[in-house]
Write a protein that binds this DNA or RNA. Structure first.
Length: 189
DNA sequence: AGGAAGATCTACT
DNA sequence: GTAGATCTTCCTA
C-alpha cells in the first residue's frame, strides 16, 4: 500500500507529523527500506529557512512541482531529501531528517562505510548516502509505485510524537516544526 | 573568485 | 558533550 498523492496535498506541518512511522523505499538493484522517525516542515515563501524564500531559482525550482514530488539539494557537502506538499505553484515541503533501517542494511553499511546501524540513517545527510539519494533524484513522484523512490503506508502507529524547533536553521519560525518519534534511537542528536 | 548552505566527522576535554 | 575543520554544489559579483 502506497500513500496517495492527496496525502501530500495538505499543510506541510500536518504531512510532516503523519509521515512518521511510514516506510521510505528506494528500488535500485537492491531494495532499501527505512521507517521514517524524524521530519521537519518548511513553508515556502513565508519561511526564511526555506529554499523557496528567495524565489524560484535553478536550485529551488523543484519546490514548485506538485505534491508528492521529491526535492533534493546539497548542504555542506551532503544531499538532503524533501517531499513537496500542498499544490503545484505553492512551494512548501517536508524534510526527512532520519529513518530507522528496515531492509537492505548490508548495502547501507557498505555505502556508508560504517558498521554501526545507528550511524547509517540517524541524520538527513546520512540517510541520503545510505539510500543512494542525490541531486539526480529531483522531481520523482513518491506516490507512484513505479518510481525509484516511494513511500509506503504503515499502519503500525504505536508511538508517541514529540515536537521541537527545527535544527540548524538560522531564522526559525515561532511554531514547532520538527516532529519525531519519542525515544527512537535513530532520531538525530 | 568567493560565499553560502536545513550537516557530519574527528579529536579532544 | 563540544569545537573546529571540512565536505560539494550552485548562486552572485
Amino acid at each position: 500500500m502506497i500513500l496517495p498523492k492527496s496525502f501530500y496535498e495538505r499543510d506541510p506541518a500536518v504531512v510532516a507529523r503523519e509521515l512518521l512511522g511510514n516506510m521510505l523505499v528506494v528500488r535500485d538493484k537492491e531494495v532499501l527500506k527505512g521507517r521514517i522517525v524524524e521530519t521537519e516542515a518548511y513553508y515556502g515563501l513565508s519561511d526564511p529557512a526555506s529554499r523557496a524564500f528567495k524565489g524560484k531559482t535553478k536550485l529551488s525550482r523543484w519546490m514548485w512541482e506538485d505534491a508528492g514530488s521529491t526535492f533534493v539539494y546539497m548542504v555542506h557537502g551532503y544531499w538532503l531529501f524533501n517531499i513537496i506538499t500542498e499544490r503545484k505553484g505553492k512551494p512548501s515541503g517536508v524534510l526527512i531528517r532520519a529513518v530507522e533501517p528496515v531492509e537492505g542494511i548490508e548495502h547501507m553499511m557498505k555505502r556508508r562505510g560504517k558498521e554501526k546501524i545507528r550511524d547509517l540513517t540517524s541524520g538527513p545527510g546520512k540517510l541520503t548516502i545510505s539510500f543512494n539519494i542525490s541531486g539526480k533524484d529531483n522531481g520523482l513522484k513518491v506516490y507512484d509505485p513505479e518510481s525509484r523512490i516511494s513511500v509506503e503506508k504503515c499502519d503500525d502507529k504505536k508511538f508517541n510524537i514529540s515536537t521541537s524547533g527545527r535544527i540548524g536553521v538560522r531564522e526559525d519560525l515561532q511554531e514547532h516544526l520538527r516532529f519525531f518519534i519519542e525515544g527512537n534511537e535513530f532520531v538525530s542528536r
